[in-house]
Amino acid sequence: MEHYNMNLTVKVWRQKNSKEKGGFESYPVKDISSEMSFLEMIDVLNEQLIRDGDDPIAFDHDCREGICGQCSMYINGKPHGAWKANTTCQLHMRAFKDGETVTVEPWRAGAFPVIKDLMVDRSAFDRIIQAGGYISVNTGNAVDGNALPINKDKADASFAAAMCIGCGACVAACKNSSAMLFLSAKVAHLALLPQGEPERKSRVLNMVAQMDKEGFGACTNTGACEATCPKEISISNIARLNQEYLVASLTADK
């Protein structure tokens, strides 16, 4: 792998807090190594800003290994940047060329208000989970783990859905700011397992109701969510959710 250094212009959204209006600022950064991660480039820029007496750019990040789901930058017109199946923290600078201008924006959605600069409030996702994204089993009630064999294909499909990291890139990518991919991943994860059966119907109805209440848009199956998802959660989970919803609402008692 050939390594090289580059100079870039970073055009980034600055917004003091949720109440004030924001706008773009451009900053030059120099001698960025192609081996750096994108966030390490932002670190360099921030150190530069602090030394110059400016306010550093606030952004969410934590594990920096693509699993916690906290990092959330919309880079050059795509959530998490250009690489496929990737998070912002795992995007590396070899994806950029010397002299390039990189535009960085926060997730944009009414349900994800900006807290500061590139940080947004995604607590709506937690409330959607609270509406039913769990199996009601108190600690100590479990039977032996092998008492209930689960078809491997179903277990694998459930795992594939459960890989969602809750980053919100699907919402950021969707023209409707819909949270359907996030929601459907959880519904599919639990609906595919026998343990999820008892609450299967109430779960999907309540979670959809909560999603609507939070102000996310409706899904129009454009597929942008799937294309940007760092964990490649399949859009077919949304179809599964639709089916779950249809069955649950048609067979509901009231």
Partner: peptide, 22 residues
């Protein structure tokens, strides 16, 4: 051992063999 049982009951999708066991 209780931990595994509890997690399975919560719906943690552990890897399984073709027979459906952990």
């Amino acid at each position: 051992a209780n931990i595994i049982d509890q997690c399975v009951a919560q719906g943690v999708p552990f890897a399984r063999e073709y027979g459906g066991l952990l």
